[in-house]
């Protein structure tokens, strides 16, 4: 069953149009990879889905039209965002960051701490004093605490040390295997995305130019659209 359906999405930053027609669909429990070179509209698409910027086109989540909802109402429907650049609440502790976002459901402090043991160890530490990797774990944990039905991870491993990156990717794989939550994942590593995701959509110059099963993503396609 389709959870999120995006059709002919267009969006602009002032006079500069960023999206020219993005189409994508995510089913319940499915993980979709969003691929594309820098500046092709991946983060803008995420911002539009989360209603953080105005957009035209059709945005339907679980049968409900998102296009007229403010961003907090869209989030309450069950869209959890792990934003690019982490952006934790710096003055709050780890536990407070998680508690501030908490909504009842499967995910609670204990489960987040089990997924990221480092967060459990640093419960009383201020978010600002965490390392980049730990802040990223906190950003994922905070999104999980909202008990979303769709988790959006926007460059969740960007700029992190290889070991931390591996730790976070392992957690994402665990989420995929065990939570049954739908995911929209943006990441630079195609190799990792092939493991974590079922399907992919490729954006080029603000348009979706390819979509299909991950297994069907050929070397020719990635070379043509992604240059790899």
């Amino acid at each position: 069953m389709t959870l999120l359906s995006v059709t002919q999405l267009t969006a602009s930053y002032g006079a500069s149009q960023a999206l020219f027609g993005v189409d994508l669909e995510i089913a319940e429990g499915e993980a979709l990879a969003m691929l594309g070179r820098n500046g092709m509209g991946k983060s803008t698409t995420v911002r539009c889905i989360c209603r953080m910027m105005p957009a035209q086109g059709t945005l339907v989540f679980d049968g409900q039209d998102l296009s007229r909802l403010p961003s907090h109402r869209a989030a309450r429907l069950g869209i959890g965002l792990v934003p690019e650049g982490r952006r934790c609440f710096r003055d709050l502790t780890v536990a407070e960051n998680l508690l501030a976002a908490a909504r009842s459901g499967h995910w609670d402090m204990g489960r987040v701490a089990a997924l990221f043991p480092r967060l459990g160890e640093r419960r009383t530490q201020r978010a600002a004093s965490l390392s980049g990797g730990e802040q990223q774990m906190l950003a994922i944990g905070r999104a999980l605490m909202t008990n979303p039905r769709l988790l959006i991870l926007d460059e969740a491993t960007e700029g992190l040390a290889p070991t931390v990156r591996a730790e976070i990717r392992a957690a994402i794989n665990t989420l995929k295997r065990e939570s049954g939550m739908a995911m929209l994942v943006i990441d630079k590593s195609l190799k990792e995305l092939r493991i974590a995701c079922d399907r992919a959509v490729i954006l080029e110059r603000g348009r979706s130019v390819w979509s299909g099963e991950m297994a069907a993503l050929s070397h020719e396609t990635t070379e043509r659209h992604l240059g790899i």
Partner: peptide
Amino acid sequence: QVPERVRAVGLD
């Protein structure tokens, strides 16, 4: 601190 982030977790 960050109103936009708060909206992203479903709070107004």
